[in-house]
């Protein structure tokens, strides 16, 4: 019995960061994804069935709606190109580094991690498709999280609401920088270490600041919902709600982002 206990304890240390067993870890991550896939198989079968019997008219309507949406998006994208060019010229004028936007990978959410206190998603893309640890996870409405473990064909991402997660952000209105941390609640975030005199208001939108080089800057993260300044306290208690629909939707974008000066070492 002591042997088994000792084995468990040593596994704790061996499996943590040891590069020698990285291939084994990859295999394990993919194997767990298989378990998750078996668990969601009935749901997927039902979805496939209902999708198969969806009426032609419903599909045509959806197609028409998507066409319109696509047209609007394309129009906006054209403007975006010119704005980006303009922006990079300004950045050059200001002598600040040019931002390099990488590609994005579309991944499907296989499942949500079973452990209730951790907010992890199991995704169907892995290192074979170019996913790597630390890449940002984006939803339609904002930042969702980041990739934390990568298998060969699957990966796991931590949501911004996980109580061990934090994102460097900036208030759009005033430019104040802050850190947004999760509290383990799917619809709540906390803005940490803001002095009581900071210019922040309810309704302010927080976007990623790009500091730290991990998240691409400018993506919306949360809106401020509540500010409480306790008399005499040095810091304000600021809570926010995530903008991304963390518990909805089936597809996410994984952004392959590298800041232009990410190679600079201190």
């Amino acid at each position: 019995m002591l042997v088994v206990l000792a084995l468990c304890l040593s596994a704790l240390f061996v499996f943590r960061e040891n590069p020698r067993i990285a291939p084994l870890r990859t295999i394990m991550i993919d194997a767990t994804a298989t378990v998750y896939e078996i668990a969601v198989a009935p749901r997927d079968a039902w979805r496939g069935l209902t999708g198969y019997f969806q009426s032609r008219r419903a599909l045509q309507e959806e197609n028409g709606r998507l066409r319109q949406e696509n047209l609007v998006m394309q129009g906006q994208a054209q403007r975006l190109v010119s704005v980006l060019a303009e922006n990079s010229r300004y950045r050059a004028l200001l002598n600040s580094s040019e931002l390099i936007e990488g590609d994005v990978i579309v991944a499907e959410i296989i499942s949500v991690s079973a452990d209730p206190v951790r907010h992890l998603l199991v995704l169907d893309k892995g290192s074979d498709q170019g996913v790597a640890n630390g890449q940002a996870l984006l939803g339609a409405a904002g930042l969702m999280g980041q990739v934390v473990t990568t298998g060969a064909t699957t990966s796991r991402a931590m949501l911004i609401t996980d109580s061990t997660h934090a994102v460097p952000v900036q208030v759009v209105r005033s430019g104040v920088r802050a850190l947004v941390a999760g509290v383990g609640d799917i619809d709540q975030l906390i803005v940490r270490h803001l002095a009581a005199t900071t210019d922040i208001r309810i309704g302010d939108v927080l976007v990623t600041s790009g500091l730290g080089g991990r998240f691409p800057p400018g993506y919306p993260v949360a809106t401020v919902t509540d500010i409480y300044i306790a008399p005499g306290a040095a810091f304000a208690t600021v809570t926010a709600v995530p903008l991304a629909h963390l518990d909805r939707g089936r597809h996410v974008l994984i952004a392959q982002y590298a800041a232009a000066d990410a190679t600079v070492t201190p």
């Binding site: 019995m1 088994v4 206990l5 084995l7 468990c8 304890l9 040593s10 596994a11 704790l12 499996f15 943590r16 394990m28 194997a31 767990t32 378990v35 998750y36 991690s113 079973a114 452990d115 951790r118 992890l120 934390v148 473990t149 796991r156």
Partner: peptide, 23 residues
């Protein structure tokens, strides 16, 4: 130990933690 370790891997937590607890 086998069940606990499997759960650890599934949950993405430190491998061996729940193994120890389950034992």
């Amino acid at each position: 130990a086998v069940t606990g370790l499997t759960l650890d891997i599934i949950n993405g937590s430190a491998v061996g933690a729940l193994g120890f607890g389950a034992v």
